[in-house]
Amino acid sequence: MPRKTIREAINEALAQEMERDPNVIIIGEDVAGGEGGSSGVEDAFGGVMGVTKGLLPRFGRTRVIDTPISESAIMGMAAGAAVTGLRPVAELMFADFFGVCFDQIYNQAAKFRYMFGGRARTPLVIRSMIGAGYSAAAQHSQSPHSIFTHVPGLKVVMPSSAYDAKGLLIQAIRDDDPVVFFEHKLLYDLADEVPSEPYAIPFGEANFVREGDDVTIVAFARMVHIAAEAADLLEKEGISVDLIDPRTTSPLDEDSILESVRRTGRLVVVDEGNPRCGLAADIAALAAEHAFHSLKAPIRTVTAPHTPVPFAPNLEAAYIPSAARVAAVVREIMR
């Protein structure tokens, strides 16, 4: 099977869905790039990370739409187009920018189906980037996925591999409800085996990254790889980790998490988001409510601290959950 990076897998998913369904369009800032430029080069950017490169020459300007820097209008236009029959994939370049445009997502797109008595469909996908690690500081490094997960009416996807990215994005585009698809900016070059034909991965079905008996670790996106590193360290010490990547935070594969916790009796949740009212706390509460009697040790979470993301590389490194921290926490509850 061909190996592809997450960047390539997402690009392929977009291209194949655009090929299949003329209603699928792409909207965003510099998703093509070069509009009005003097070189005549179309597609000069293809997205700031090159994810949408090549789609403009293939599908034309009516389907790959560069916009002014106007996130509220982008999100509102995409939501309005979705509820009237198109299937827009709108790009919110950095997730941090949700601050500029959340009304159109939170009060508009997310509410339509319920508020209109089930009579509306809003097949909208919002692609956006999360994650620290580039010294991009407080306004370009956040992981605000918990805020979106909190909202009834949104589905939230956080792929950790190229295989998942392709299948989940195709599912997101075919889904009739608003889906927020978070790409971690440090994972774009990560490659794995990705089938060339289109395929969809259903939402709410966890991936069992590795199986073990001593402790359950639940992690998303880049944290899956951090947790896997920790599991490697722990394996040498005779501790075996059951690593679960739920892949979507909403819907959440509660059954798989609970089954695993009931078996291992221990749970550590790793999340790059901030701790209060966050994803890690949410999953910890799930286990506390439904698997309490199986627990052999306190549930633990490893998250970013309750701070904005700092600029200095040494502070940023201390901010992001590390394999060493995850392993240390596991050792504590194995004692």
Binding site: G99, V100, A137, A138, Q139, A312, L315
Partner: peptide, 21 residues
């Protein structure tokens, strides 16, 4: 060291900050 290029500020000079948004 917490802000960097995109957040550089000097309130003592009435400079309310670069802004990455």
């Amino acid at each position: 060291g917490k802000g960097g290029s995109m957040h550089i500020a000097d309130l003592s000079k009435g400079m309310l900050g670069a802004n990455a948004i």
